[in-house]
Design a protein around this nucleic acid. Sequence first.
DNA 1: CGAAAATTTGACATGACTCAACTGGAGTGG
DNA 2: CCACTCCAGTTGAGTCATGTCAAATTTTCG
Lengths: 192, 192
Amino acid sequence: MSVKKIIDNLQKNIVLSKAEQDLLTEKFVFKKIRKKQFMLHEGMLAKDVAFVVKGCLRSYSIDQNGFEHILQFAPADWWITDMYSFISQKESTLNIDAILDTEAYLLSRKNLLALFDEIPKLERHFRILTENSLVGSQKRLIETLSLPAKERYRNFCNTYPTIAHIIPQKSIASYIGVTPEFLSKLRGNTGK
Amino acid sequence: MSVKKIIDNLQKNIVLSKAEQDLLTEKFVFKKIRKKQFMLHEGMLAKDVAFVVKGCLRSYSIDQNGFEHILQFAPADWWITDMYSFISQKESTLNIDAILDTEAYLLSRKNLLALFDEIPKLERHFRILTENSLVGSQKRLIETLSLPAKERYRNFCNTYPTIAHIIPQKSIASYIGVTPEFLSKLRGNTGK
DNA sequence: CGAAAATTTGACATGACTCAACTGGAGTGG
DNA sequence: CCACTCCAGTTGAGTCATGTCAAATTTTCG
């Protein structure tokens, strides 16, 4: 059963008894999300946080000129949501959709809060998730300010080795902040 | 007394009784930080969060080539710390120092946690602070990926109107991610 | 198979950087 | 109070990174 993957992931940060594991797993809802299907639309509330077991989701915003900018990819074993909307229950500024056919487990804010009462140490895991979001975002900001596109591409490949050669290149271009044409040229000369 | 400014700031998010206000204010420590003095060095633990009442602090990291990249300014009425280190009590990756002679109130992690027990609704304020850090960082990331330097400069001026014409231009350049020379040229033609 | 989307390629334009020279304060020591 | 130094800021010439647009090619998928 792929539920086990959620437990394994959680146990990277906290230890869970069998009873706690059972409590947890019944709160998650399995969902298939086909390529191009949305999990969250800008302006809605982020009701759920998702744990991906297969495929890949992405979160992104759309600027004034209609260009997409990808904030995060979530391949297997990653968590994703609009952290801001999910925590504060205000309107989301992000979209989340699937760039590959995807399977994920969804946990609603309501169920998560209920779980926090039953398994307080769970808070630790989700606090760490928020911290990682913050650190990741700051790290990328510095990177974007200081590194040329070629190295940002290398960093992307290191951060997301499992999907680097599966997802469309224009998604990668959007993530590292260059045009698809330019990324194509980058890859052209550096071998690969 | 400038302690009042802390209370006013907190009351933007939560309501505090007189008794709670007194509890709070005795936990803050007033401190003068002269221009160029450090409040936090990379590699240390972020023991305190600071509320600035006068002057300006900045947080920044230093890249492999020795260049500084400013993550945040904190003029009067702003909070600042290395959120990651402060929350997780792991080594900081940021430096925080003063770019103007500054006056601030410091609150230690230990005292903050004690206050959370006595005034639970305080958690709300600090949760919102973390959220704002995350949202701010993501917003800037998108901005950096999508806007040309001239508009990033305009956004800086809107975000930090009180210090835009007081702090050195090279600090602004470091914040928006361009060389000081280029920022100077930008300002040259767009007439101020 | 055929249409639509993704990728590649090339010519050209422009934003942003580097380096070097110059200008104009803001300290500092005499 | 002056002379000196030291930064911060400005300016210009030349270069490099990246963007734009358009055309050609490949891949995807109904």
